[in-house]
């Protein structure tokens, strides 16, 4: 939206919607059904279901919470929603606008609105408190098993070592040349997908793969071996991981929502996102920084969703 009059109208409309809950018993009923059906669909997806089950062990830590909720969502009342809405606006609110707009005019408009608050951003990121390593398995009628290995990163989102952790996770398991992909998939033909993902605001690194149930132990051992191999990771792989991360960050410039997400994430650290600065920080990371960040990860759970022909 590049027209300033339209933009002002949009901001006014958005604020009205946010501050006056436009919900009736009928719309609440429909929304609850939709949410509940979505929860059930998540359970039908083997990987999502396995992730939710594997995280349960960490309750009441935030990582164990199901963002989408559970069947109790059907008990929500209109009064509860209105109360929640009112509390929500007592919290710090971040507002981002991206577009070909006059920055001064936009800021002026926002300053006059309810969004102009003198509140400090909450640190909504946390760290997973590592639990003793444990293994659980649950059976499901499925053609494939899912193995999830969970690690506490012990490096939070605001930590200066966070970028090193992200680059390390890419080199470990987010590239077609990563240690996990080249070993578990390419060398041993044991899976189609295997990834290592950092959940930034929970302080978690998950390794997820879909495999045959007969190969669970072998794959688990190979994953452990790649953590060891990471201590000798090649300069070339580190360089590839850095480039991929830079590519992803630069691409966000083409997409409004990606830009807002990066801005929002930085605002949690009370920073303004600066692509050039982040690029420099990534390029300046040494291999030792990255190995050291990955060495901070603590293995704390192994979960297997066992795909069976019948349960």
């Amino acid at each position: 939206m590049n027209d300033e009059t339209q933009n002002d109208a949009f901001v006014s409309w958005a604020l009205k919607v946010l501050t006056h809950l436009l919900m009736s018993e009928e719309t609440l009923k429909e929304a609850k059904i939709n949410v509940f059906q979505n929860i059930k669909r998540e359970q039908e997806n083997s990987v999502k279901h396995a992730l939710a089950l594997s995280a349960e062990r960490f309750l009441p830590q935030s990582y164990g919470l199901k963002v989408e909720g559970d069947e109790s969502v059907m008990n929500l009342t209109l009064d509860e929603l209105v109360m929640f809405q009112s509390k929500l606006f007592q919290q710090p609110t971040a507002c981002f606008q991206v577009g070909q707009l006059d920055q001064g005019l936009v800021m002026n408009h926002l300053k006059k609105s309810i969004l102009n608050q003198d509140k400090t951003s909450l640190s909504t990121y946390t760290l997973l408190n590592p639990l003793p390593l444990d293994r659980q398995s649950v059976s499901k009628v499925s053609s494939q098993s899912v193995l999830i290995k969970t690690y506490a990163t012990t490096i939070d989102y605001a930590d200066e070592r966070y970028l090193a952790l992200r680059v390390g996770a890419i080199a470990l398991g987010s590239l077609p040349t990563s240690l996990l992909f080249t070993t578990v998939r390419e060398k041993h033909s044991l899976c189609y997908f295997i990834t290592a993902n950092v959940i930034a605001f929970d302080g978690v690194l998950n390794i997820i793969t879909g495999i045959d149930k007969e190969n669970v132990n072998q794959v688990s051992q190979l994953i452990d071996e790649q953590w060891e191999a990471f201590k000798e990771v090649s300069d070339e792989l580190i360089s590839q991981a850095k480039l991929m991360m830079l590519n992803s960050l630069r691409s966000s410039d083409d997409d409004v929502m990606s830009t807002i997400n990066l801005m929002y994430a930085s605002s949690l650290k009370n920073e303004v996102f600066d692509l050039n600065r982040v690029e420099s920080l990534i390029l300046d990371l040494s291999k030792e920084d990255i190995i050291d960040a990955m060495n901070q990860c603590v293995a704390c759970n192994e979960f297997v969703l066992l795909g069976e022909t019948h349960v």
């Binding site: 083997s46 499925s142 053609s143 494939q144 998939r185 033909s189 044991l190 899976c191 189609y192 997908f193 879909g210 495999i211 045959d212 795909g307």
Partner: peptide, 12 residues
């Protein structure tokens, strides 16, 4: 082996 694993993923 990789392709059969991919097909198993879709079958699920």
């Amino acid at each position: 082996g990789i392709i059969v694993s991919e097909l198993a993923m879709y079958d699920a």
